Each structure stands twice: as C-alpha cells, then as structure tokens.
Amino acid sequence: MAKHRIFTTSFASVYPHYITKAEKKGRTKAEVDEIIRWLTGYSQEELEVVIEEKTDFETFFAEAPEMNPSRRAIKGVICGVRVEDIEEPTMQEIRYLDKLIDELAKGKAMEKILRTT
C-alpha cells in the first residue's frame, strides 16, 4: 500500500498554514512554535533547522527528540476522524498536531492545549 502523500510533504510547506490559521484568530507564531516544541521535544533551533531543510513529515516525527507522553490525552475529531482511533502511528502524530493547532485557533488557553494540570 502506498504511503499517504502527507508523509512525504515537507513540514516547511505546511508550517506557514499553521501560523496563518493561528494568526487569523489572534494567536501568534510563538504559540504555534510552543505547541510544536511541546509535542515533539524539538528545541526552537532544531525546529528552525527542520523547516530550513524542508524535512518531510515522516522524518520530522521519526526524528523528534522526545514525543510528549501527555499527547495521548489529546482527544477529538480532526478531518472527520477521531485522533485517538487512528491506527497508523505517524498519521496519528500528524493529526495530534493538527488538533492542537485547531484548539489554539479556537481560542483555547495554552495550559489546556498543552495538557498541563
């Protein structure tokens, strides 16, 4: 079975869309970056390198320094699919990120988005 197209899409090509979505709702690039760092464990410098090198999504998640264990608390529907029910691990990671960006754009507090107690 062929890989989904998003796996070979560069993270850098989608990243500006995350920022635009957030900024349209009064949120910031810094908040988008904070979410990405929280989810993946990348430092800001590492994130900037990934973007500059146009790393694809599959590699972006495969090489993430430390996926946040609290990401399993992310629940809900994205693109008509419940994120907690997605069986393909990389696709689930991508959809977790999509869900977090959606929550940001919907005005949710960062503490709730980052699942802090």
Score class of each variant (00 low, 15 high):
Trp38Asn: 00
Trp38Gln: 00
Leu39Trp: 00
Leu39Lys: 05
Thr40Pro: 02
Gly41Phe: 06
Gly41Trp: 04
Tyr42Asp: 11
Tyr42Thr: 08
Ser43Thr: 15
Glu45Met: 09
Glu45Arg: 12
Glu48Arg: 13
Val49Glu: 12
Val50Trp: 08
Val50Met: 15
Ile51Lys: 13
Glu52Phe: 06
Glu52Val: 05
Glu53Ile: 00
Glu53Gln: 14
Glu53Met: 11
Lys54Cys: 09
Lys54His: 13
Thr55Phe: 09
Thr55Asn: 11
Phe57Asn: 04
Thr59Pro: 02
Phe60Met: 04
Phe60Asn: 01
Phe61Ala: 02
Phe61Pro: 02
Ala62Ile: 09
Ala62Val: 04
Glu63Cys: 05
Glu63Trp: 08
Ala64Thr: 01
Glu66Ala: 13
Glu66Leu: 07
Glu66Thr: 03
Glu66Pro: 00
Met67Ser: 01
Asn68Leu: 01
Pro69Leu: 06
Arg71Leu: 13
Arg72Cys: 06
Arg72Gly: 04
Ala73Glu: 14
Lys75Asn: 10
Gly76Lys: 05
Val77Ala: 02
Cys79Gln: 12
Cys79Leu: 14
Cys79Asp: 14
Gly80Ala: 07
Gly80Lys: 11
Val81Tyr: 08
Arg82Asp: 11
Arg82Leu: 07
Val83Glu: 04
Glu84Met: 07
Asp85Gln: 11
Ile86His: 04
Glu88Leu: 10
Pro89Asp: 12
Pro89Glu: 12
Thr90Trp: 07
Thr90Phe: 13
Met91Ala: 13
Glu93Cys: 10
Glu93Val: 01
Ile94Cys: 06
Ile94Lys: 00
